[in-house]
Amino acid sequence: MSVFDGLKFRKVSSPIHNLDPRIKFFYVIVIFFSAILFNQIIVLLTLFLMTIPFVLLAHVQKEWLRSLRGAAFLAFFIFIVNIASSYFTSGYSLTANQIESAIAMTLRFIVLAGSFSVFFLTTSPDHLGLALEQSHVPYEFAFAFTTAVRFVPVLAEEAQTIMDAQKARGLEMEKGSFLKKIRNYIPVLIPLIVSSIRRSLELAEAMESSIDH
């Protein structure tokens, strides 16, 4: 139902869930840099397919597909922008090469979304924090990172609620021209950003008041 379920960690036991989070983190980083370095469709496709066995092993295929479906909108957007920009910059014509690079760009995004999704679906924030500390990552960084990760599901749930609230006021996200569709995201993004800022201010206050000066 919700595209954001693709980012929520749920406590289950599977070989992937039980794997040391550092290994998973390393894997995601490797995928990340490979996807950035290579722009051949075949490499990107391989990177994408490589992730699928992990998804199946972890039994999170339903949630994973949902997050991909969520990413599909942005992927489509990336594709269109790429095609349009090369169409206009090369004097109103398109070569096979340009189409290929647009596809590669889109695929790159899907690879990143897919691998991050498996990571968040199978790693609890607690384990992640512990693992980072054990690998001698500075505490400030580990804390900031795990706090951010911890807030991903909160943010996802919040985005869903905000979408519901705006739909209840007659917003039809899928309606209208392409530009209108993008503008439809404004009533969702602004409350999301404002609530996040409000929340981080609260968190900062709570932290400050618990520090002994």
Partner: peptide, 16 residues
């Protein structure tokens, strides 16, 4: 929604 108005719990989830 034209017939059924729904006011959510947290106003920050809709004001923009």
């Amino acid at each position: 929604a034209k017939n059924i108005g729904f006011v959510f719990q947290n106003p920050d989830h809709q004001l923009f």
